[in-house]
């Protein structure tokens, strides 16, 4: 019962964010980058024109939160998808061609894991360029070792199972076995991991933006909004409330879905 509670709650939260995301293409109360210096620092007030108030340039916070959802989702989903694909390929190569690829690929993965995360991001972003593209690439490289290690160990675990051995003895190629047998066996774990990874990717994106390495002003991203709020936080604490809550809802949503799926897809199978 409670398994579905995680999943259900997660779904609700993610759907909420998705709704905001879709709405941002249809209607936003103001242009998210439009400044109005004379109306800056207006406190949130449900009856006013700016429900969530305005920031230091007089920009409407609600519109910026809505616009920010685009960047957050694009970076979150985009980077994890990219990272998963590369991770699966590398992990599979390492596991299937143990003689040649294993130690090389896994050593590089070790190197990536050992590299201080923020430094890796800093350098990647400086090379690729700040902004959307930079964030997606930097975060996807974060994700690669996670998925490649997962795939690597799952293949090693399953390859001694009878039906795989049987397939090998029939002379199926490594590629066929991988597609027909390994992928279906790994799917539940991959899906689970994928969902939670989006949660952490969103978290990394906001940290990058907070440090000024992510989406560039004047465009809105929640992390950047927090970073801009920091300057004025003492005098105008409300500036940090909306973006903070938006981040928590998104990360919580994807994590809960991951947990719920984990319970349903993996634990249930183990118990049966």
């Amino acid at each position: 019962m409670k398994k579905n509670l995680s999943l259900g709650l997660g779904m609700i939260l993610v759907l909420l964010i998705l709704a905001v995301w879709i709405l941002s293409f249809i209607y936003m109360p103001y242009k998210p980058n439009e400044m109005n210096i004379s109306e800056r620092f207006m406190k949130p007030d449900f009856n006013s024109e700016h429900i969530l108030g305005t920031d230091n340039f007089g920009r409407d916070i609600l519109s910026r939160i809505m616009y920010g959802s685009r960047n957050v989702l694009l970076v979150g989903v985009g980077s994890v998808t990219l990272g998963t694909m590369i991770g699966i390929i590398l992990g599979a190569l390492a596991a299937l061609f143990k003689k040649y690829a294993s130690s090389l690929i896994m050593r590089i993965m070790d190197g990536l894991m050992a590299f201080p995360g923020i430094l890796l991001a800093l350098m990647l972003v400086t090379v690729v360029g700040r902004g959307l593209k930079g964030s997606i690439i930097a975060i996807s490289i974060f994700m690669v070792p996670v998925f490649s290690r997962l795939v690597y160990s799952m293949i090693l675990d399953t390859e001694n199972l009878l039906y795989i051995k049987a397939a090998k003895s029939y002379g199926s190629s490594k590629f066929t076995i991988f597609i027909r047998h390994f992928i279906p066996a790994m799917l539940p774990r991959l899906i689970t991991q994928y969902s939670s990874a989006i949660g952490s990717a969103v978290m990394i994106e906001t940290s990058l933006s907070f440090l000024g390495l992510g989406i560039q002003p004047p465009f809105a991203s929640w992390g950047l909004m927090l970073s801009e709020a920091r300057q004025f936080f003492l005098v105008y604490p409300y500036l940090a409330v909306a973006p903070g809550i938006a981040i928590i809802i998104t990360v919580l949503g994807f994590n809960l879905i991951g947990d719920g799926l984990n319970d349903i897809l993996i634990y249930r199978r183990l118990l049966l």
Binding site: G199, S200, M203, T206, S207, F210, G223, L226, A229, R230, F233, A240, G244, I247, I248, V251, L252, N255, L256, D259
Partner: peptide, 13 residues
């Protein structure tokens, strides 16, 4: 759940 979902810089502020 909250521990992993709250950004450290936010809670820091």
């Amino acid at each position: 759940q909250l521990g992993t979902a709250i950004p450290s810089f936010w809670i820091g502020m």
